[in-house]
Design a protein around this nucleic acid. Structure first.
Lengths: 242, 242
DNA sequence: TAAATAGTGTCTATGAGACATTATGTA
DNA sequence: TACATAATGTCTCATAGACACTATTTA
């Protein structure tokens, strides 16, 4: 909604010259989660250049900043969506994306002052195979969170990942987050496994089902046609009502 | 902890020239809460210059950015602490301060591209009188949140305040936040009033006391000497165990 | 028929909301 | 003594954890 600007203020803006105050480079970094082979994984990129050449790093890039008052460039949120699309090839509206935290320690990039706004994203496991990763060029891959302790990560990306992990573990229980880590249709045991994998602890099947049934009654999820065939008794299929 | 940097990378950094990529101005904005006269209030500053001249705005300022790789300026967190001290005159270690969210919409400042990292702070009501506000110069004042709906605020500061309100209301119940909105010693009814004011709903005295006693057993708070004299029965005094 | 797991039911402990009651100070 | 409110107690309901049990499919 355009606000009303007085003639006085318009005149001020017309003659305004930005002072040459030192400015910071602004980037967005993405912690993109998915679940593959019953493991919580993050999309990482191997750095081809210095600094931290050869280390794993979060995908990300510079926020496009315009130089004039009228063209100021892209929103920071838009930069995150754009990077998400560039790095995964997935349509941004099919992937959950939310701002995480801003990391602004001086010296976090040895080249120059760079402040990064970190985001986290959740890619449904049925979409993960469409992400160009893990091919012959092993410079982009889904790395298991579990195996990350040993890995050396670029910049402060380990800290960013830890922050993202804390966030999704905290939000999983009281939000709809889990439905973005599961295919469009899913069974109760499948959803339960997602919880067990993310929270890294077993979930009681009976208690989980009770809670889940509450969501059915509340209209959050609904039955979908068919049954999921397994090695034993097939399970009923549900879908998330958006 | 200084990481090990290879000779190769050192050479790279020595010859690195930052490209003249457009950069953004970086600010911090502070949502500083306190409770005065049984009202939740925010410290606001009246703008003396365009744009938004005459409107209330959040206190804040530019992050100091260095121009070289070695001197990169101050941490974003440090900038927030510095502004907090400059605006309130209070020692930063006596005031709770936490990063809130980053607002990076293009055009949010009509002059040029400015991205702001918003923080929120909690000033204990016994310290609030020491903040230079509400004097003859009425350009800095503690404004009641309740009265904010009518006020016209500068930039996107209304949105920032709403985000901060949602944050403290959400965190109040499951964190130690409330103890930063109460003097060093306090009674159960006093703490209950803080909850009632922040959440804007009455709290049952009996139920609140039960929950509170749980915190005593858990060692979060403890009895302090003396009693608080009121118009009727005096109340026991407690303090927060940090 | 055996194995596996989907799905149901039960017992208990805990915590929150509603609300009645008692205790202890001041005016 | 009247009044205000601090402090305690009680009843009920919703929810979560632990765990036993039944149902239904495949191999």
């Amino acid at each position: 909604m355009p606000r009303t600007v007085s003639a006085d203020e318009q005149a001020f803006l017309a003659q305004y010259k930005p002072t040459s105050y030192p400015r910071a480079s602004l980037t967005v970094d993405l912690v993109i989660f998915t679940i593959i082979d019953a493991q919580l994984r993050i999309l990482l990129v191997r750095r081809k250049e210095h600094p931290f050449k050869g280390d794993w790093a979060l995908p990300g890039g510079f926020v496009r900043v315009g130089e004039t008052a009228k063209d100021q460039g892209e929103d920071v949120d838009a930069a995150a969506r754009r990077e998400l699309h560039e790095e995964t090839g997935l349509e941004p509206d099919r992937v959950f994306l939310e701002q995480l935290y801003t990391f602004g320690r001086a010296g976090r990039d040895p080249r120059m002052r760079v402040v990064t706004v970190a985001y986290y994203a959740l890619v449904r496991p049925d979409l993960a195979p469409f992400v160009r990763a893990g091919g012959d060029v092993s410079d982009v891959d889904w790395i298991a969170v579990e195996s990350l302790g040993k890995q050396h990560l670029a910049f402060d990306h380990k800290e960013i990942i830890d922050t993202a992990l804390a966030r999704i573990r905290g939000k999983l229980e009281y939000s709809d987050l889990a439905f973005d880590l599961v295919p469009a249709t899913f069974t109760i045991p499948e959803l339960r496994h997602v919880f067990a994998i993310v929270l890294d602890r077993p979930m009681d099947p009976g208690n989980f089902r009770r809670r889940f049934n509450g969501l059915v009654d509340a209209g959050v999820i609904e039955r979908a046609p068919g049954k999921r065939i397994t090695a034993s008794k097939p399970a009923a299929v549900f879908r998330f009502k958006r």
